[in-house]
Design a protein around this nucleic acid. Structure first.
Length: 207
DNA sequence: GGAGCGATGTCCT
DNA sequence: GGACATCGCTCCG
């Protein structure tokens, strides 16, 4: 098995549709310390990215960045390769990565993963039985955040090109993927634009 | 298996 | 005050 590499800053410099396509088939990794003293160890959770959506900034009525820079969406207007985590519907978090050069406000929303490492921990985080249907773990933007323990307070604004962030994307040289394009989900404005990208036929795609 | 709907916090008008 | 890049429950077939 080839050595996995963390996706570098330049990967995120492209427009969001290009970054979105490029993320499909890559591994989203969450690492954190557990235990203390001699029992301290690193736990690793991961999932293969199977569904993403692209959001252009000021040109895209559906994007959080459309109305301009605010305290909430500031990360999107910063440099590429940072996590934008926001709270939605009073209950859920959603994870995005900033892309394009600073000032554009573009981003990619992560909508679904195929769970790879740490399924039992993910089930616990989701409040499910240890061997629950794996599709319930990370199929959906709110679900994948809960499964990986991603919350705004901790993760909004962190650099996802650094291993020590505890949240990053690896290229583990998984084979090429067959990309399907469709309309973005759960939005009202600019809903017709074909900016949702999935791995064709993958059973962990949401919706 | 699908439609309908309530829960619930934060941000912007 | 309303909208919101969601989820899981109920009810009906």
């Amino acid at each position: 098995m080839a050595k996995a590499r963390i996706l570098p800053r330049k990967f995120y410099l492209d427009p969001p549709d290009v970054v979105a396509r490029g993320l499909l088939g890559k591994l989203l990794v969450r690492e954190y310390e557990t235990g203390s003293g001699a029992r301290k160890k690193i736990e690793r959770l991961s999932g293969r990215i199977v569904e993403v959506e692209a959001y252009f900034g000021l040109d895209d009525p559906a994007a959080h960045a459309f109305a301009g820079k605010t305290v909430r969406n500031a990360v999107l207007f910063g440099p590429p390769g940072f996590a934008y985590v926001y709270f939605i519907y009073g209950m859920h978090f959603c994870l995005n990565f900033s892309c394009e050069a600073e000032g554009h406000g573009a981003g990619v929303l992560l909508r679904a993963l195929e769970p790879v490492e740490g399924l039992e921990t993910m089930a616990r985080m989701r409040g499910l039985a240890p061997h629950a249907n794996p599709k319930l773990l990370t199929s959906g933007p709110g679900r994948l955040c809960q499964a990986l323990g991603i919350v705004r307070e901790t993760h909004n604004g962190i650099d996802v090109t650094r291993a020590d962030s505890g949240l990053y994307v690896e290229n583990d040289r998984h084979g090429p993927v067959d990309v399907a394009v469709s309309r973005r989900i759960g939005i009202r404005k600019a809903a017709e634009r074909p900016l949702r990208f999935t791995i064709a036929g993958n059973r962990f795609v949401s919706g």
